[in-house]
Amino acid sequence: MSENKIANKYQVRDVNVFYGDKQALFNIEVDVLENQVTALIGPSGCGKSTLLRCLNRMNDVIDVCKISGDILLDGQDIYSKKIDVVELRARVGMVFQKPNPFPKSIYDNVVYGPKIHGMIEHKSDGDEIVETSLKRAGLWEEVKDRLDSPGTGLSGGQQQRLCIARAIAVSPEVILMDEPCSALDPIATARIEELIDELKEKFTIVIVTHSMQQAARVSQKTAFFHLGKLVEFGDTDQIFTNPHNQQTQDYITGRYG
């Protein structure tokens, strides 16, 4: 990291995912680089969200979901027995498709993660974390006077930024975003995209999006999925200007989707 060479944060090697009898992902190989935004695109049902949820083991919740292959985070297999999923998720935060703040105050929303991870010893620690997280999520100015009001009372875009603040409050290394703007209007979307650009300075970001424009705007690397297979993976510029694969070409030019 001290060198200029960008380190591999995630190495996804030969990953297959099954929901019961149905295979959702086939032999996926992707590298996620540190402090970059990697976009996963493809038509709906192509498995991009499935891959994202494998990266912090959110698929564990689903009983019928089985996974094979290796997913390495900083060279360590996250599916190994030695890994505690709770600690993993503290390192890998997640922002969901629909903003899902807890029905609690804005303050409690942000401070919840640090609390359960033992990052708060005095109340002042919490205040500090809440302020820095909300500032970094670009929400501080809008809510600093009403930290005690419920998070569910905010607008959709604000709610999503609150969820981002909540995710970064535990100082993760990676943030996974699952179509974070799909439920938002264009202005709120622009705001979040700006934010993603700022956040990549400190965090590694993997984002699933159905909007190719968004992928083109925010990401450095893009992976294109189709029917559970990784069709093409490369620099965003290259994918959007000079795709090697005909399918990719058809998709980004809007032939199907």
Binding site: D84, E87, R91, I116, H117, G118, S171
Partner: peptide
């Protein structure tokens, strides 16, 4: 330390 090996596994 950020490494999980160096942290307390569970809250006190």
């Amino acid at each position: 330390s950020k490494l999980p090996e160096h942290k307390l596994h569970s809250l006190p």
